[in-house]
Simulated assay, not measured.
Amino acid sequence: MKYALISGFADEIAGDVDTQFRVLGKLGIGYFEPRGIDGKNIANLTDEEVERLKGKMKACGIKASSIGSPIGKVKLEEDFEGHFRQFQRVVEIAGQLGAKYIRMFSFYHEGGAEWTEGERAEVLSRLGRMIAYAAERDVVLLHENEKDIYGDTAERCADLMEELGCGHFRAVFDPANFVQCGQDTWEAFEKLKGHIAYLHIKDALLADGRVVPAGVGDGNVERILRSLLEKGYDGFLSLEPHLGSFDGLKDLELDDKMLNLPPGGEGTFTLAFQALEGILERIL
């Protein structure tokens, strides 16, 4: 039995969409999570560029599972109005590409690991405004647990979901990111499982934070997948390999854990896909 809803960040294959789609087709993957598109971030595409991307998607039989946006991946101290306008543009692009979901984050700050009540309140206020806008346009914001943002630990992710969780604000569960924050991923899963609408397939080692193929690290990927699928999960499994460097990686990471990797590409993406396939074969 094949799992139908496999997607991935195809910019880890190559910067150009033609190569991305060629490899996705070769692997039998019918979805992608657009992030890097021909050297530009998805949020920065013009209408003309979006139309050109739509044409290539249609020609190759590829659909967008979620927009891999950078929304919320800025500091609280930065101007929010400009960022909100970028968010509105991302919502527009999601509509143009037929994507129901938009991946997003919950802001960095200057204060290190500790967050004040005032900062928490500001995060909730900003997210609440974006959720209301998403609800008006019938898209779903997916919060990703990411290193160094407010929602990096399971406790703070749960806080966001308890305060704001709804049909238009759900969770992306990324095991590797929790590992890199020193979190027990099974405990995190237990806290968040009622809010998970989307999964990033990425694993890492607790010892040094190094990303490894799914099932090889300390992310409990197979155990979590098994639990979700046995309970009827039918959402996307999105490959985010991070097994090699790729264009735009340096713009995604604040620290240097991921910046000394050998070049990635079709080989590392295929390895990540094969690791997921192996897990699914054991489960299904």
Rank of each mutant, 00 (worst) to 15 (best):
F21E: 01
Y3C: 02
I279R: 01
A99N: 10
L237R: 05
G28T: 08
L259A: 12
S125N: 13
E162W: 13
F173E: 00
A132W: 10
L160A: 02
S238G: 01
P70Q: 04
L5H: 09
L261W: 08
R137M: 10
D148L: 13
V211M: 09
M161S: 11
G217F: 03
H195I: 05
E110R: 13
A4P: 06
Q180V: 08
I71E: 01
K40R: 14
F9V: 11
Q86C: 05
D251R: 14
M1D: 07
N145W: 02
P241A: 09
V139T: 03
K191Y: 04
I71S: 02
R226F: 02
S227L: 15
K58C: 04
E266G: 12
E110S: 15
R126T: 12
A272Y: 00
H83E: 11
K63N: 08
K202M: 08
R223Y: 08
E146S: 12
A135M: 04
P263E: 15
E187G: 15
S245F: 11
G39N: 09
R85D: 09
A134D: 02
G278F: 04
D218T: 04
F105C: 10
L192Y: 00
R137Q: 11
Q274F: 06
L228Q: 04
K73L: 13
D234E: 15
R170A: 03
R170D: 00
G278Q: 06
P175N: 13
E81F: 01
I93A: 03
E77T: 15
E240F: 03
